[in-house]
Amino acid sequence: MDFRFTEEQDMMADVVRGLLADHCQPADLRRLMASNEARDSARWAHIVELGLGGILVPEDKGGLGLAPVDFVQLAEAAGYAALPEPLVENAGVALPLLAALVPADHPVLTRALAGEITVALAHPANPMVADADSAGAILTVAGDTVHLTTPEAAGLVHQPSSDPFRRLHTLANVAGETLATGAQPALDAAFDRGALFAAAQMVGIAQRCVDLAVDYAKERQQFGKPIGSYQAIKHHLATCQVKIEFARPVLYAAAADLPNGDLHSRARISQAKLAATEAADLATRTAIQVHGAMGYSWEVDVHFFLKRAVALASWWGDAALHRDRVAARVMTQPLGPEFTFARES
């Protein structure tokens, strides 16, 4: 029993956090928004250079062969930065799915692992497809069959999001080259990764909102003192931090357990998604409140995180769906303290 990240995992997270601190500040986001581009190509090039595309792809398929627990802190960092580029959906969800369905020398997989293209995923759990316009290939799903298509062939219909960095589309034409049939287990695993890493991003968003609000509360003076010296402000922010601190261990346990692929691990992932959603919901709203009227302005950066949190709350399954997955474990499996780390036997 050791509930700690390894030094390597922490180091990799530090590298990504550092890169995003350098290249993905709110000022960078605003610049990207003004440019009307899908991606900041310089930032994306830095991310590609880290070689993270294949992080969850098995080594025999050309990847790094690492596990969700190696990626979870990276997804958290992406949330903390409100990263526009599809690091999480590409490397965390779509590429491991593609790798599970095709041989190592499939050209789409090799090009994606080389960082030449990204792959978007039209998973039935989501009504829209994220980042389809900038992708080199799109995976579509019909029943348990996965098809491969392109943005050009798919007939993309833009579905503008309130989050200026979420590029959502629906597809007029989902037909394409059949990659695999009987892919339900791989699609279920992709769903689990999607939900887990959405949760990770929301924990990052929640922490960022607390940090932004703390910075502001230290500076902003009213009645001759920083507003952060008042208990009304302190207690709001402390309550947010408590939510975050108790979402994290659930998130990390869910990441470690995801490969088990059983009723217990699915419930833990759903629990993580629910806890992270709650933390992000509270922290985003609190950050706006702490900023006062400024918090309702376009000028203050909190709204970027608010919009991402609203989106991710129901992306990869809404609260009702995830509560049902928790219920499936709670109402049918043995309960009690000796089953915290249980697996289905």
Partner: peptide, 11 residues
């Protein structure tokens, strides 16, 4: 909550 705000968050 005061302790969290002052020692952890640095308010």
């Amino acid at each position: 909550r005061n302790i969290i705000a002052e020692r952890m968050l640095g308010l």
